[in-house]
Amino acid sequence: MTRLLDRTFWGLTLGLFALLLLNFLLEEWMRSIGLQSLSRGCVAIGLLVLWRTGLVSFGHALFFGFGAYTVAMLQIIGINDIILLLIGGMATAGGLALVLGFLLRQYRAIFFALLNMAFSMILYGVLAKVESLGSTDGIGISQVTFFGFTASSEAYRPTLFVFAAIFAYIAAVGSHWYLKSTLGLMTMAVRENEIRVEYLGYSAEKAIHIKYVLSGVLAGVGGVIMALTVGHVDPDSMVYWTVSGDFVFITILAGTGNVGATFIGALVYELLRTYAFEFAPEIWQLILGGALLLIIMFLPDGLWSLRSEWRSRRALAAARSGKTEKGEAGQ
């Protein structure tokens, strides 16, 4: 129950190796979808961390965009290695979350959600005006080095995919462990009863602040991956409030039951959007909206609930056929 190397850990590890193997087989367009899923998945994990505290952010494109633009700015000053860019993106997004957290931790519910959005719109407005960062046209991201090594042009995207998968893996496992820790489980306590948390001797606001910084860092990781994937950053595709909406969409789609499900949710979202746009360019928003509606109506706990559903059915079937439930007892 308390082991760090639990089923989710092994599931994520298996997922990582599957991705690394798949990398040899994937067509470039599929790899691109994979990279974008990994990127948005990281941000959605950050939202999951907040969601479990009962907080929704409609503005996490703020940190996503901050991470992405950090890549552009670091490249301007000549820093071009993927590790340094990642650390830079995490630091700036996390630093921004740390500062804004002092204000945001005082707000809950719709105020929290919209205050995040307000900040993301301010960043959007600023970036749209800054000429040195290309204003509304954005700015290109050049190819990066990997620990100082330059990849050949055929090997560049596969290498990028390997690094992105490892980054996302570390983000997912770290978040999973965090959510199992005392501080991580305190999300539930804060959501349920802040007064009790306070009278147990801990500051509910501080707990929220820590979660907020963590979610900012995760969004920064997502932003860095996205900037390198797309090779271009601009305010509309990185910071605009609809980008924040995408992350909320993924979180609802995946459910908040498990960090692994978040990446599945991100992949499903990516496929849904790609195919909806390809086959029904006139009404693709209608398809996305319809999908969201169906999820909320029939799977309010997201895709992850399919698994628990399946397990309880299997348990029921096992019970009916008179078998022992050994397989389930360990859960």
Partner: peptide, 13 residues
């Protein structure tokens, strides 16, 4: 929560 000690918060509950 009551027995929290700095980094101890990151250990399993």
């Amino acid at each position: 929560i009551a027995e929290r000690t700095g980094l101890g918060l990151f250990t399993p509950i």
